[in-house]
Design a protein around this nucleic acid. Sequence first.
RNA 1: GCUGAAGUGGUGGAAUUGGUAGACACGCUGGACUUAAAAUCCAGUGGGCAGUAAUGCCCGUACGGGUUCAAGUCCCGUCUUCAGUACCA
Length: 781
Amino acid sequence: MLFSKKMETQIVKAVCDDEIALFTANQWAGFSYETQQQILLGYRLTYLAETEVNWCAELGTVLANDEIVNGVSERGGYAVVRKKMKQWSMRISAYAERLLQDIDTLQWSESIKETQRNWIGKSVGATVVFNVKGHEVKIPVFTTRPDTIFGVSFMTLAPEHELVAALTTPDQKQAVDAYVKATAKRSERERMADVKTISGVFTGAYAQHPFSKQPIQIWIGDYVLAGYGTGAVMAVPCGDQRDYDFAKHFDLPIPNVFQNADISELAFTDKDTAVITNSDFLDGLSYKKAVKLAIYELEKIGAGAGKTNYRLRDAVFSRQRYWGEPFPVYYKDGLPQTIAVEHLPIQLPKIEKYLPTETGEPPLGRADIWAWDAQKCAVVSNNLIDNQNVFPLELNTMPGWAGSSWYFFRYMEKADRPAVFASQKALDYWQNVDLYIGGSEHGTGHLLYSRFWVKFLYDLQHVPVKEPFKKMINQGMILGESAFVYRVVGENKFVSKSKAQGYTTQPVHADVSFVNTSNELDIQAFKNWRVEFKNAEFELEDDGSFKVGREIEKMSKSKYNVVNPDDICSQYGADTLRMYEMFLGPLEQAKPWSTAGISGVHSFLKKLWRLFHLGTDEVFNVSQTPASKDALKVLHKTIKKVEDDIENFSFNTSVSTFMIAVNELTAQKCNSKEILEPLTVLISPYAPHIAEELWSKLGHQDSISGAGFPVFDPSHLVESSKEYPISFNGKMRFKMELPLDMSKEEIETAVMTNPKTIQQLDGRVPKKVIVVPGKIINIVG
RNA sequence: GCUGAAGUGGUGGAAUUGGUAGACACGCUGGACUUAAAAUCCAGUGGGCAGUAAUGCCCGUACGGGUUCAAGUCCCGUCUUCAGUACCA
């Protein structure tokens, strides 16, 4: 590290963790190598730190926040506990503001953008530092309402707060210890579920109000989360409902700092109308002005500063699994050292079992050849470790998002890498992902991590873009229709659906393949399915059938509601399946899989085929005769609509358009090549197999996939007249064919002299006649 | 609670800038062909009232208001469903 002469005694401020101490260049030079390395970790984008992690004992690994759903692991649903561990983390929080700002540049669904905004969770406020009476320590808190600083009547720390033990007075020790223990025992999930119960304990210690110097009781309470802000709050019961509830419950004072606000029942939380009172220098100010002044005064006395807080936590980057990229890191005197780029990649070692070791080390702890020889720059046997030249390698591996965050940049060029990802030329040409079709479940994981990586890569000028995915469509899931049979509790007896009310029953999933369209169960097939059902008893409906219950659920093997598309394929063909899926409805919409209606798509394809053939003999019959005006109109109307639909991912309406086109051309008895050939190309992305077949019958040697998209010619759609809807007070009564080149006045005259108009008016004189040429005529009165 | 999306016939769904609500299908009803069935084709199909009929009128896009010549579409409020998220200081 180089310092200028001036910097030697000047404190250097850099973007890094808040807790990092400031020092001068001379001081830096005086630090030991170890200390310097420790400090540098506080600045690095990827750093090793003792962090509170989500530990899943069953999976033997830590999990990222987004890998936990409802307090249990997303994979397997196992318990997850908070635990301190030394882990690699990535400083995604350093990019929080940019990740938030750039959301606006994305063409993503509003819901997923909002999910990311919430996950980043920006809140603007201030840090306020409280002195503790009789202690050297200070307690910083984060607040979004520094304007209510004179409403502080107590403080609350999270039970896990590091100062709890030190601050607790001897006579409160027993109560505090018991409370901390009880909270630790409760799982995160329980704590979340139980929002209503108010609990907490007084520590016996007092903080000091930064302005009034009044003593403030310090409590601990589990409504304060260790993981957010500083893990401590200044409690303003008059302005925050949780503080209010806590104060009421423990009979703590509730000073009112709002003018004309009734706080007898609830806290006053409306910022916009708040006027501060009983607050010394803040008296009479609005929320906005009071916040500014409070921060200014806090900074003046060194008891706080304006601060923006983010909910977004740094992401844990270590996994205790085998299958993941190994870290190019070895340890010298316990300090991580990176392996130089030219020696990469290092490859996963062979191990016997892909499980954690008996002592709880990650699977790589089982490897025999997993040490780094810093002289030879090679991976060598663990036996050679002497901590002089040969050092132990990192045992953790990288998580899935180490690869998923950037892989698409390598797709841009197939040749050997000339640069980090691809040549500048390829990167400039391809830029980023134009369209990402995927599920919204990645909203707070992969899609955020990837945005972070790409911003970092952009900063280092490895890629020319700031965002990985320009446009995203969250396709809807095809759901399954599960079938349930009702088992009488405690008996090996099943009752048909309508009889189930008479018993205490438990629904059991039955394989949907045993059930027909009228919800009747094939009992024999069901009996043969499981040994335990073999001798089961069945109570039938009065008509002798056995009916199942139905419910729409996610398609899943465990729910036995998976339908195999192969069956549809063999019955109707792949084109029918493909088109039917598109025809079901909008791409973004989740919908249950139902084959009702598939025959419509199938018969459409047969109709299409018949358009090219004569009679039942399958004789190919496409003529060279020029197309009629009407046929050209149908074709170009279709080209226009399909073109627009593809742009809008509105495939369901394209299918309708094809149906209309084929119906109209069939009615016109059109078999002109001039029409059918471009129509075949148009339909080829929707029904590729049949299109390819017709294409070859049309005399082409090459695949239709190389054919150019038909060009829309608006001249075929030009009309000379329009069938105008004639409305009276907004209600359409009849239609009238009128030339399009008529003036408004001429149209009005034509309409008003029409006998039907006279009949409708029945002697009344219209107040107004609205004529929108080419659209509508509305007569008011 | 908060955030987001949505609510249209018996069903899936159309209506992209306010301008003919229900396209296109499924289902259903009737008919043709057939010994019969399948396949195919034709006609009808939002609800109600009147009429033998042609047809006419009324009501209809979750509910209640509003803006407008005109509202499924825009505005305000309410309800319901789905999804995400949550003691965030």
